[in-house]
Design a protein around this nucleic acid. Structure first.
Lengths: 145, 145
DNA sequence: TATTTTATGCAACCGAGTTGCACGTCGACC
DNA sequence: GGTCGACGTGCAACTCGGTTGCATAAAATA
């Protein structure tokens, strides 16, 4: 899973969907690809700034939305009314998804690899589309404190 | 919609926790108990207004928060960055919970009766606390349209 | 009744996300 | 190569759910 360089990978992904690989899109996707967890727009902005790349708040929102519609990223609703994003690396089934939410530091981790198996029988009349499993607990870095 | 049982029930619940049964708390809890689904603060406010009972936005927020801390209600984070509340009727295990979110009308139903059974093995270092299962789909009233 | 505690109302605020519009930039087409 | 149109970005102002601080009202306690 060792991509040649993250930048080219991000760029390739952008070109794959036949879209303009603008600096903003490249930077954001690169940041998402490099992250081990789901990032809020603030964290993304901070990361970009640290790389010396500044852009408008609104641009970031639009880029993120665009990445989601292009199926390049994934939007997660957190417990704190903040959306978090992570890059889609594997072609997920999109029928189930698990997230881990640390109750101490608030970080959200995307557990892509594990497909939750649950047995639910919905009441009559409800039509199933997909399920999201959110697990709350303590993340590794908080647990060691 | 003045069901005598509901009011007294709401009042009893309030007195059970040894707290003041103020009009605001009574009305809100009553509304929550009468609802078949999780209500947003707006819906609660509208319902109260319809009963001729008006109170401040802030009061509602505080009452709801208070109900949650008293374990009389339950706070649900929706996909639309809005909190929804429903009365806790059965003593739930609080170790798992399932919600149904209608992707068409946005309503949230609390599936208290069904304890989701899922098999998840967290990556090393993650400590489990509790899980919330959110199921997306179409609710009965939307399905018939 | 006087005092303390608790609940409510009001106004101002915060912060995430959105909208509208102007400007810049890129690609296409003649 | 120059012009045009489409698309991306920046800026400012806005919406809206939720919060905070403080003054006042209503219970509880004495």
């Amino acid at each position: 899973m060792s991509a040649p360089t993250l930048t080219s990978s991000a760029r390739n992904r952008l070109l794959d969907v036949g879209a303009r690989a603008t600096p903003a899109r490249e930077h954001v996707l690169e940041i998402l690809l490099a992250a081990t967890r789901a990032l809020s727009h603030q964290e993304i902005e901070a990361a970009a700034r640290k790389q010396g790349f500044n852009f408008d708040r609104v641009t970031l929102y639009r880029v993120l939305d665009w990445l989601v519609t292009q199926q390049l990223a994934h939007k997660i609703e957190g417990q704190d009314r903040v959306w978090r994003f992570n890059a889609i690396t594997v072609t997920s089934t999109e029928h189930g998804h698990a997230h881990f939410h640390c109750t101490r530091c608030g970080q959200v981790f995307c557990l892509e690899q594990l497909e939750p198996s649950f047995a639910v029988t919905l009441p009559a009349g409800f039509r199933f589309e997909k399920a999201e499993l959110t697990i709350q607990g303590i993340c590794p870095s908080c647990a060691t404190d």
